[in-house]
Design a protein around this nucleic acid. Sequence first.
DNA 1: CTGAAAGCGCTAACAC
DNA 2: GTGTTAGCGCTTTCAG
Lengths: 341, 341
Amino acid sequence: MTTIKDVAAMVRVSPSTVSRVLADSPRISEETKQRVREAMATLHYEPNMLARGLVTNTAGAIGLVMPPGLNEFFENPFFSEMMSGVSEVARKEGFDTLLSTSAINEEDALDRMIRGRRVDGVILLGSRLQDPVLDQVVKLRFPSTLLGRPGHNIPISWVNNDNVQAAYEATLHLVGLGHRVVGFLGGSTDLVVTSDRLEGYRKALNEVSLTRDARLEVSSFFLEQGGYLGMMRLLALSERPTAVLASDDVLAFGAMRAAAELGYRIPEDMAIVGFNDIRLAEIANPSLSSVRVHMQQLGIAAAQQLIAQIRNPEIGVQHTVVPTRLIVRNSCGARLQPQRG
Amino acid sequence: MTTIKDVAAMVRVSPSTVSRVLADSPRISEETKQRVREAMATLHYEPNMLARGLVTNTAGAIGLVMPPGLNEFFENPFFSEMMSGVSEVARKEGFDTLLSTSAINEEDALDRMIRGRRVDGVILLGSRLQDPVLDQVVKLRFPSTLLGRPGHNIPISWVNNDNVQAAYEATLHLVGLGHRVVGFLGGSTDLVVTSDRLEGYRKALNEVSLTRDARLEVSSFFLEQGGYLGMMRLLALSERPTAVLASDDVLAFGAMRAAAELGYRIPEDMAIVGFNDIRLAEIANPSLSSVRVHMQQLGIAAAQQLIAQIRNPEIGVQHTVVPTRLIVRNSCGARLQPQRG
DNA sequence: CTGAAAGCGCTAACAC
DNA sequence: GTGTTAGCGCTTTCAG
């Protein structure tokens, strides 16, 4: 392994000079820099990040802390797109991206990453209503950004959509198409994102004076299968919904499959709107109406916020709201001639 | 930050004793271990991985080297599923997972990771026909596993499907359904996986004495849009195919969209078989027949092989072939009554 | 403009 | 069983 000493020896300067060249210090003459750089190239020198990190107390990496239930998360296209945004920014800014795979739970993952000095900051993917991880990271005063919204009042930077508003608008859209019984199909209820979208849904129903029915609000796990099962429940109700707002596209697809299997036509017998607008929404048949949340943009903003914080710890908490937009396609029936209402 | 010294001071032992407790050395009395561990807990001690890595020359992480064209890759569900397998193993074995996002190309990413001692081994995701990265990693004698097959003869561990055989069987399946003009829709031609699947396709056509036509072999980028455009080309041919083998499900979906848009019914007018069997294949309408490659299994095997290598560098190159299976659904027409042949 | 020296937190001989 | 010591590769005062 080539070290700074080898380079120094080759150019007949001291290790500190080589170190200064690495940092492009103005105190080193251009000529020396030139010679040192040549030596680095011929020796294939690459700085040892561990050694550097040990003294500078930096890691050159940002950590992605997965929510519990890794697999569920990996399988959701949301994840890839968000990560694509994160890593794009990380790359540009010279950071690597570390996945918190080595621990069994979020708390341990965080401890390992933070106290173990493996990363310079963390992006927390999603939050639960009472989330100890948030307290933990705030208590440690460690650079961090939450992708989502904290469920309780805590000074932490975050990047989020206005999920209440988005779900509110999506629900009103369905109501505007004439639907009087609208179901809500959500993911895990202790996730803030689920609760926010549910709130928006309820708000809309209240506003148009439609009676709410707890049985119309089903929650399941965040997988296609979860949507499938949830939809089965909704369809089994004595007063079954004619439209459903799903809090995730993957759930929406499961719901569509369930409905189709039982002979319901979409959108004629059952209108569906999803959330996230994953790539597949456009391709599917029928194409899925969905609230576009700009997943990649969320990832980009989170990474940028985090890196700004790492570079300037005094920056204070930052909040970014990425706007959403309802993309109307075929699954909600808006493109049909109005039949009800 | 709590260090080993703080713990040592608290228990009134030397730092080396604490270090030995960390390693659970048998030379330390149970009683001392107990006291040290208590101190570690109350002080929230967490070992500094940088310092440890500096002396042991380990990083506690495995690197995932993305192929160039990050985004294309992130968007393919193949990636998430494979990564889910990798990280599951990594977690169990106590490794973190580092994404090579910080460099602009694979070579630099590797240099940074390997010479920078950020990882203990790397998983290379996919290979091109002449791939300098493979030479690089072999030359450095660094633990590594290729997810795919090397395009040239080089002693490197890999995990792969038998893509030639799989494509051969899939093509024969289509021929067996009576198709006499079968198209091939591939990804980037310099990828080994594309070339292998193409070879299997050709082999099948030769075997059943169907004339091959270079115009029936189109290649495009690895996105839905690529499949869409490729299919448009195939449909424009004077002698157009009645069946298409797509070397990736995402391409297959693009192809299906193109065909549907132009009024072709699937599978009646156009039979399609894809590759990878992503989750969506089952859900899609019509459901997509696809060669299941067990993406997660590939990731698991790659990670296991790599970690075995890290733990025992003398282990030599290992090769794993993960079997494939053609999953017949609706898009290939096998479930219809035979109409041709 | 450059060099010498100390030290980041940890492990690993080598002592006792 | 435990302590002492040196050193991993690098950055950073402090000298000059």
